[in-house]
């Protein structure tokens, strides 16, 4: 399972780096096209928005892999070790519920509903863009299952060590 996690981490990281670099290029192109060559781009805003959405969801899955989303753990830290472990498993179960209901099922419903709806500037459909949600949902579920096993085995602490994660 560790091997699978590492493979997913590396692949996701690579995808995020590429999407982010692409995002910079698209928006810089938008400025260049309008201000330097006076031929305003008609597709760049839409392309940038959807690249951003995909980047946001994928990078978000990667943060679940690291248990890095902001959480408030000062209450749980005061509890006995065994209770902490029970809560840690419960937390991952709730993450799975969110991923499966909100991202996988809801994402598929949203994709289906907008399957025929064309984007205005790009040659694809909004439904296709929505597919990032179920894909992310599956990834987050895999990561959460990994953390459940790791916490039960004692390979991971029940309360993740504090890091500098902040919502800005």
């Amino acid at each position: 399972m560790l091997a699978l996690k590492k493979f997913l981490d590396r692949s996701l990281a690579a995808v995020c780096v590429v999407l982010f670099a692409l995002l910079v290029v698209i928006v810089v192109w938008q400025v260049f096209a309008r201000q330097v060559i006076s031929d305003p781009s008609t597709w760049s805003e839409e392309a940038a928005r959807y690249t951003f959405v995909w980047l946001g969801f994928f990078a978000s899955a990667l943060v679940f892999s690291e248990r890095g989303h902001i959480a408030v753990d000062f209450v749980v830290r005061k509890l006995p070790g065994l209770v902490q472990r029970v809560i840690a498993v419960l937390v991952q179960a709730l993450i799975i519920a969110f991923a499966l209901i909100g991202l996988v099922w809801g994402g598929l419903r949203a994709a289906q509903g907008a399957w025929d709806t064309n984007l205005t500037a790009l040659p694809t459909q909004i439904g296709v863009m929505y597919l990032v949600m179920p894909i992310t949902g599956v990834l987050i579920t895999v990561y959460a299952l990994y953390h459940v096993v790791a916490v039960l085995r004692g390979a991971e602490l029940a309360v993740a060590p504090t890091d500098d994660a902040e919502a800005i």
Binding site: R34, S38, P40, T42, E45, E46, T120, A121
Partner: peptide, 14 residues
């Protein structure tokens, strides 16, 4: 001529 006219993002409006 030469004026940047804001339009909605669609082929038709462009």
């Amino acid at each position: 001529a030469g004026q940047k006219l804001r339009v909605q993002e669609s082929d038709l409006h462009v």
